[in-house]
Amino acid sequence: MKAFQFGSPKSLEQVTAYLAGADGDVRLMGGGTDLLGEIKEGTIQPDVVVDLKAVPGLAFIRRDADGLAIGACTAVADLAADPDVARDYRGLHEAAAVVASPQLRNMGTVGGNLCQRPRCWYFRDAATVCNKKGGSQCFAEQGRNKYHAVFGGGLCWSVYPSDLAPALIALESKVVVASPQGERTIPLAEFYAPPIVNVRKENILSRQDVVKEIRVPAPKKGDRGAYVKFMERGAWDFAVVSAAVKLTLAGNSISDVRIVCGGVAPVPWRLKAAEDALRGRTVSESAAAQAAARAAGDARPLAENGYKVDIFKAVVARAVLAAAKG
């Protein structure tokens, strides 16, 4: 591990002012549950680590007529324990409750969860210089790839593991980003960018941007949600496949639906084909299974991860049914 400077800013303005003039490799840290692992394993060698948890006022969950506002430094555990979230946004609650382990949920932050780096054992390995680290190949494509992407691969077959991102995208959430130029609000669905845009990173943030808060629209009548996460083991595991579903029921019929998956692509993966297949249909096991099968048609598995497509079909169908059940 290379020695680095550790910054404990007193305000968000201090952070953005610092970022405006900073050079070298500067990393923002929420709970550090991903960042410290990257540093310790030698994936990255930052010059400066800025501790966002030192900034007062970034940890909150507020509810108003517009919906929910969640501070970037809110602990994942606090989101999981919030009774309003559990009542009004079941999918989000379920996603927060299955993140990693109790210790990691206590340390990890909502902002950090959304900005964590993707999972790929080649990317994470200090000695491997892959496309994502400025190299000229993807080691997973021809290598060991049982956990890798089945959608959206190509330049990079890593998977985006966040549990909160699919749930928040399904809820049409927005991200408030602070920068030296001021604040802006971006739909979370547009926050992530696939490898084809820039293989070195997973979102559109510039090096001067800080995620400040997440806004979740107020629930509408008939809105329901669910999050289903398939892990190999019972805890402290990233999703092999996860699916967040938000749907609106009119009687027994699906008037609107959003399905976003985790663990299957380099970024959170929206299933528009499955949504189209479900819109206007009556909720049933066969409708859910057909929609999942339709989405699975786009999958491009590698040598060792074909089983993920089977799991994907089951998880998507189950998430749709769980959401509909309310």
Partner: peptide, 25 residues
Amino acid sequence: KIMDPRTGTMVNPNYHDYKVATAMD
């Protein structure tokens, strides 16, 4: 223990990728 044929090294030499049962299992 999963080995990479090209580099000849283990790809999961940590407590996360090498999966040991948790209390939940």
